[in-house]
Each structure stands twice: as structure tokens, then as C-alpha cells.
Simulated scan of single mutants.
Amino acid sequence: MTLPLHIATQGNPANPSIVMLHGFSMSHAIFAPLMARLSDSFHVIAPDLRGHGLSPKPEQAYGDSAAWAADIAQILASLDRPLLLGWSMGGRVAMDYIRHHGDAALSALALIGSYTGPVPAATKANRGPMFDEDQRETGTAAFVRACTKDPLAPDLAQTLLDEALLCPHHVRMALAARDEDYTADAATVTVPTLILHGDADAIVPPAASAAHNIPNATHVIYDGIGHTPFLEAPDRFADDLAAFAREARK
């Protein structure tokens, strides 16, 4: 069953579309600087995934891969060959969509700081304190800090913390139980795919990204960058993504 997701958009709907899926406990707000950079040339769509941000947070709606896929399918249905970008857990949700709907409706796929195999041990360790309700705020703050190699500007860091705290305990616990393996699904991808990772990523080790088995994918590593390359190297990332999106639509 789909849920009525909160969706942020920027740019002219007549332009090529990029749909951005955020990661664990975050929201569309993590993409706000990137959306602003791309909105002159692209129609950018960033939903709050189920259980996150301003989207519904039912008690039990997180274990079914088909349900996550349906949420994304309802967004893509009105778009003309969008690029689907998934960051961190958002890459897993993108793979839910690929598993159940294939990639025929896409122009391209971008997986940023993400992985298609089982959840890496480092990922579980970094978000572990967030699963203890008594440590919810301090654990979330530690997770947000671990997402970047160097500290973000205080106002941006506070925005990410505030948004991450909107994800309630029952959603976090349900997501902890999701350990899907998308290795077989990755092998079915046919569209141009960008796999981009920071070499200083403490949340998802670069080796997890390198293990993607998507045919003919383009792998890019940013030196000295952590889990959020679109925040840590914003101009470079926006330029690289825009160039990839344009090339994929030719």
C-alpha cells in the first residue's frame, strides 16, 4: 500500500527530472542545497520517505520491499524518464523500485554512498545509539556528525539534526530489521548508473560501494570526502551529477 508522501520540488517541470531519495532517519532537507544548485536546469523532486520528515509514520509499514517500491512508482508515474538518485538508505529504496518495477521508466540511476549487498557492519555501528530511545538525541547528533569528514556549518548541521529527530523510534527499529540483499536486482539494471562515494565515508565504507555489480556502471571516488559528498563538495557534486544526467538522456 502506498502512502501520501510529503514531496519537495524545485525547478521547471518542463525540464528533465531528478528524483532524490534521502537516507536513514533524514528527510528531503538534506538535499536542499543541491536542489537549489540544480533547479535552473532540472526539475528536482525530493520526497520524505515513509516514516520520515513530514510523511506519514504508521506503526507497521516498513518491512515490505514492494510497498517502498510502490511509493516511488507513484512519484515516477507522471515524470518523463527521470534520473533516480538514492543516497545511503535511499539507494536501497531505489533498488526496491528496481526489484519490482525494473528501470524502463528511468533515464539513469545514481547511487551515492550506498550499497546493494547486506548492511555493512560499520553502518550498523554508526547508527546503533539511535536505536536506544534514552540516547535518541545524542545518538542522532553523533550520527549526523559522522556523516561528514569535517563539520558542517552550524546552521546546516542543526537543520539535519532537527530533521533526523522527526524519525520516531518505532520507524528506526523497523528499519534496523530491514537487511535486504539487492545483489541479484543490481545485475538487472540496464540504464546508465553513477556510483559515487567519498573515500572518507565512515557510515558506508567505500568497499561496499565498490562491490556493486551493476553492469557498466561509472564509479567515482571523491578524495577526502565523507558520507555526504553533495554537502561536502557541493559545487563539484552538482556539476558532476548534472553532466551525468544530461549525458544519460542523449
Rank of each mutant, 00 (worst) to 15 (best):
H219W: 06
L156G: 00
D223F: 00
I203Y: 01
D185K: 01
L160K: 11
A217R: 13
T218E: 12
A187T: 07
A207L: 05
A157H: 14
H197R: 03
N213T: 15
S209R: 04
I214D: 02
A200Q: 12
A174K: 08
A187E: 11
A187R: 12
L175V: 12
Y182Q: 03
A207F: 01
I214A: 04
H197T: 08
P206G: 07
A202S: 11
L156I: 13
A153P: 01
L160F: 03
L161D: 05
V189C: 09
A186R: 03
E163S: 15
L165F: 10
D181F: 09
A187W: 11
D223A: 15
T188M: 13
G224Y: 02
H197C: 03
I195L: 15
D179R: 08
T183V: 13
L194A: 07
I195P: 02
E163M: 11
I214Y: 03
A200C: 13
H212F: 15
D223Y: 01
E180W: 14
E163V: 05
H170W: 14
A153Y: 00
T188Y: 04
L161E: 05
A202V: 00
R178S: 07
A202F: 00
D185R: 01
T190P: 08
D199A: 06
D162Q: 14
A186E: 04
L196G: 02
P192Q: 03
D199P: 06
V220R: 13
P205Q: 07
L152P: 03
I203V: 14
D181M: 07
T193G: 04
G224E: 05
A174H: 06
A177H: 06
D181K: 04
H170Q: 13
Y222H: 07
A208P: 01
L161W: 11
E163Q: 14
V220W: 06
A211D: 01
V191K: 14
T193Q: 06
I203D: 02
P206C: 08
